[in-house]
Simulated assay, not measured.
Amino acid sequence: MSTLPKHMPALDGLRGVAILMVILHHAAEGRYGALAIYERSGSLPMLQLPEWLSAIAENGMHGVQLFFVVSAFTLTCRMSQNGGSLAHYALRRLARIGPGYWIALLGYGALAGFGPTLRAPDGLSPMDLLIGALFGSVWQGGAALAVVPGGWSISCEVAFYVALPVILVVLDGRLLRALLLCAVATLLALQLQLRGEAAGTWTFEAFVNPLAQAPVFVFGVAAALAARRFGWRPPPGLALALVAMLALLPAAHNVVFAMIAAAATALAARRPPALLASRPLRAVGEVSYSMYLVHFALALPCLEIAERVAPRSDWTTLAVSFPLLVMASFAVALVTHRWIEKPFIIWAGRFGSAPAPYAASGFAAPPPSTVPEVGRA
């Protein structure tokens, strides 16, 4: 089994690509997306874009799946090589996403209130808020999904955090088992979708269910095992070509996107392309979680500025609103990452670790000199 490079800057670069895809998707929704957290009406206008640009923007929704794959890859590398107690693992995961998420919950509550909105027609009940605060929105569905805009992805991420130690014990470091698990998870997810489509119940709530998203995470786990198993150094252009495919070409299916994303992540980790390892893209990736949480609140003011600056057509409006939203989100994220995310991550990292069940057998930690720095997780 080969070792991965000690530092994999391309992982932050991939996170940067992911958040840019997500922000483009939401910027292209125009007032429909910008006002969804405030308004109840479903007739809010979306930007009317050229077909090719609309397809790219629509595909941006899969940026969340790219986040999932990179997260699964990173955590699998870290847990399989560094070990650590389950308590320490849980504390680090909670410190990583909890503070920012809970502050976002309070912030959006203060900004938009808890009354009726497009995604919560009857408003938010105390139970919705409680379930949302406990990262259970994807299991509850309904108004709980509106507690934090985009919070469904964080709820899915937490479900994966809970499952990952068990998955690693079952896989025991064996790539074949991981591939079989990918096949099983894919078949189950496709069965859920086919049944939902036949019954007319395949809605957004069904799509974001962790069982439907499970193959995406599992492909990330398999990619990490494959990257550790094979020492081949691919040409950097190959990973970059796959990333371009992810960003620019409409995905045939969520699972297809996840497969390509997993391959791109494994290849980029082995030999990072210069673009993915560039400082600007890595800087965006390093604060991508904060950018994800805050960009919903900044979408409306950025759109209104763009409409004044470039009122001629919707595509010129997007040409202004998208980079403006990226820059505004990045600026705010620098502050929230520095003063909210980072202190809690450092605090959790001070706690020691002890051998854990998933560090056994195929996941025993290697000598310290071969442990890679897998970046943020």
Rank of each mutant, 00 (worst) to 15 (best):
A212Y: 15
A163M: 12
A214L: 14
Q140D: 12
P165W: 06
L194H: 15
V184M: 01
A222F: 04
V208Q: 12
G141D: 05
A199M: 11
I167H: 09
V218W: 02
V184P: 02
A212W: 15
F207R: 14
A146R: 01
Q140A: 15
P215C: 08
L145H: 05
G142I: 11
V218L: 11
W152Y: 03
T203M: 13
L188K: 03
L171H: 04
A222T: 05
V148Y: 03
L190Y: 12
L211S: 12
T186E: 04
L171K: 05
E197C: 10
Q191M: 14
L176Y: 12
L188P: 01
L171T: 01
A185Q: 01
L187W: 09
A212M: 15
V147G: 00
L164E: 11
A214S: 10
L176E: 14
V218E: 06
L168P: 09
F219Q: 09
V169P: 11
Q140Y: 13
G141F: 11
C182S: 02
L192M: 15
F219E: 06
E197G: 09
L180S: 07
L194R: 15
F204V: 11
P165S: 07
V170R: 12
W152M: 03
Y161N: 05
N209L: 14
F207L: 14
A185E: 04
V221M: 07
L145G: 04
L168W: 06
G196E: 00
F217N: 09
V166H: 11
V138L: 05
P149M: 02
V166G: 13
Q191Y: 13
P210K: 08
L190F: 10
G220D: 04
V184D: 00
A206P: 14
T203G: 13
P215W: 08
G141N: 06
A185R: 02
A178L: 01
A214M: 12
W139H: 15
V138N: 13
R174I: 08
L192Q: 13
A222C: 06
A198C: 09
P215N: 07
I154K: 00
P165K: 03
V147L: 03
V221Q: 06
D172V: 07
L187H: 05
T186P: 04
L194F: 14
A144D: 04
F207C: 09
G200L: 07
R195P: 04
Q140G: 05
F204C: 08
R177I: 03
Q213E: 14
V208P: 11
A143F: 06
W152H: 03
V221A: 05
L175W: 05
Q191P: 05
P165E: 01
D172F: 06
A163Q: 03
G220K: 02
F204A: 08
F160Y: 01
Q213T: 13
V147Y: 00
L179N: 03
L194Q: 15
L176G: 13
T203Q: 15
P210D: 11
R174Q: 13
L211K: 09
T186D: 02
A185N: 02
A214C: 10
L181V: 02
L187M: 11
G141A: 11
A143Q: 07
L190T: 09
V148D: 00
A146W: 04
A185P: 01
G151P: 03
L168D: 11
A185K: 00
P210E: 08
L211A: 15
Q193D: 08
G151K: 00
D172H: 05
S153A: 03
L171V: 07
F207P: 10
S153I: 02
A163G: 09
A159Y: 07
L171E: 02
P215H: 07
Q140R: 15
